[in-house]
Amino acid sequence: MKRNEFIKISGLAGLSLAIFPHFSFSTFSKEFTRNQLIGKGNPDIIGESYTSKMHKTTKEAFNKMKAAAAKDNFNIEVVSSYRSFQRQKEIFERKYRSFTSKGLSPMEAIEKIIEYSTIPGTSRHHWGTDLDIIDANASRPSSVLQPENFHGNGPYCDFKVWLNENAEKYDFNEVYTDNGNRKGFKYEPWHFSYAPVSVPMLKEYKEKIDVKKMLAEEKLLGSEHFSDDFIKRYYTDNILDINPKLLPQGSL
């Protein structure tokens, strides 16, 4: 290896460890394909079911966090983990048909969908790094993924306190925070991301994926209504306006 190449690599390693002390340098040096970034195939995904499929490194960290939570009488249940492009497409198009059949215009339907659901090809769940989690030991409401369940007298209130105090020890961060200045997706106290993998994946997503071109190629139901202004706003507000701890350096 040439000396200048060694210095460059060593410098990157030191920077990554200084900023993210729990992260391994190998995580940051990995390159991801277009298919991995948009949910069309990832050899690093392990697991069999909708709630168990995760990036292999995310799974290791999650198991450690789950074991720690169990010692405090919390039973972490994954409601949603890895979600393929096709699965996200099914969710998006089902909601689009439902909302438009109830009288909403195409753009009204799309705006309603993206309050909580992502457009296929843009979901963080495509990476296998992001989890929707609850406490299986608590009483189960009819609709588990509601913000009120995690606060006040909600069944997951104590669990949320535990997550606030412990999740980052295992490199999991809440994605869509309760920040009044944040735009894009609404507050999701159940949605956590494994930063050592999701941060470099977001970095490469920004570098490799032309969202406008990708969405045009995929021909989603209703995508003809995606104007340039809408895509620009969606990219800025929904993809990038997240917990700053999950943004690549230089994104702020």
Rank of each mutant, 00 (worst) to 15 (best):
P155R: 09
Y187M: 02
D132W: 03
G128A: 07
F92V: 01
I209S: 09
E5A: 13
S84C: 06
E218T: 10
L220V: 11
L104C: 03
R182H: 07
G47S: 06
A13L: 09
A136D: 14
K219G: 08
S101R: 11
V78T: 09
T177F: 00
I209P: 07
S223D: 09
E174W: 00
A70I: 03
R97Y: 14
D210Q: 01
L12T: 00
K208G: 07
F25T: 04
R83I: 03
I76C: 09
S26K: 12
Y205G: 02
K2N: 14
G180V: 00
I76A: 07
F6K: 13
A67D: 13
M1S: 12
M65P: 07
L17K: 15
P248A: 04
S49N: 13
P43R: 08
D158P: 07
D237Q: 09
A136C: 07
W127G: 08
E165M: 09
K53H: 05
S16D: 11
D130M: 14
K206R: 12
D178Q: 10
E174H: 04
F192N: 01
A195I: 01
H225L: 05
L163I: 03
K232I: 02
T57M: 13
I19K: 15
V175G: 03
Y116F: 14
V211D: 03
D44H: 12
K95R: 15
P43E: 10
P189N: 07
I76Q: 06
F28A: 05
A13W: 04
A70C: 05
A136F: 10
E31R: 11
